[in-house]
């Protein structure tokens, strides 16, 4: 009997939880706020689903009731992606080492 592809996806999911567990414990507490903003940005990779949904409309009817939700989701996810990565960048740029000449 063949293994259902779902099982493979489930394996990836479970193993990723463990990777997440160990990686996040090693994040230094002083960077917990950037951690939240960057996880925010990366979870917006949900935009891939939104793009598929948006492009599903046929050419004479681009905005049907299903693709319009896709388009809206693209904008929402894009706010998060740009906002999340840029604000993380801005925060991380502030974490500097002591400079003697300052």
């Amino acid at each position: 009997m063949e293994i259902d592809p779902f099982i493979f996806r489930l394996s990836i999911f479970i193993l990723s939880i463990f990777i997440g567990y160990y990686v996040v414990w090693s994040v230094t507490p002083s960077l917990h706020t950037p951690l939240m903003s960057v996880t925010n940005a990366i979870s917006s990779v949900i935009i891939v689903g939104a793009i598929i949904a948006g492009l599903a409309g046929n050419s004479d009817n681009i905005f049907n009731n299903s693709s319009i939700f896709g388009f809206l989701a693209i904008s929402l996810a894009a706010i998060n992606i740009f906002g999340g990565f840029l604000v993380t960048q801005r925060m991380l740029a502030m974490y500097k080492k002591k400079k003697k000449d300052k």
Partner: peptide, 30 residues
């Protein structure tokens, strides 16, 4: 994160599943 993972399973998309799991466990640890 868990919401993203749920959608990732629906779309059969590895990037979403991995990310969802990472974000889900990250938030739980915090």
């Amino acid at each position: 994160g868990w919401a993203a993972a749920g959608i990732g399973f629906t779309l059969e998309n590895t990037a979403l599943i991995i990310t969802g799991a990472l974000v889900g466990s990250s938030g739980a640890i915090l």
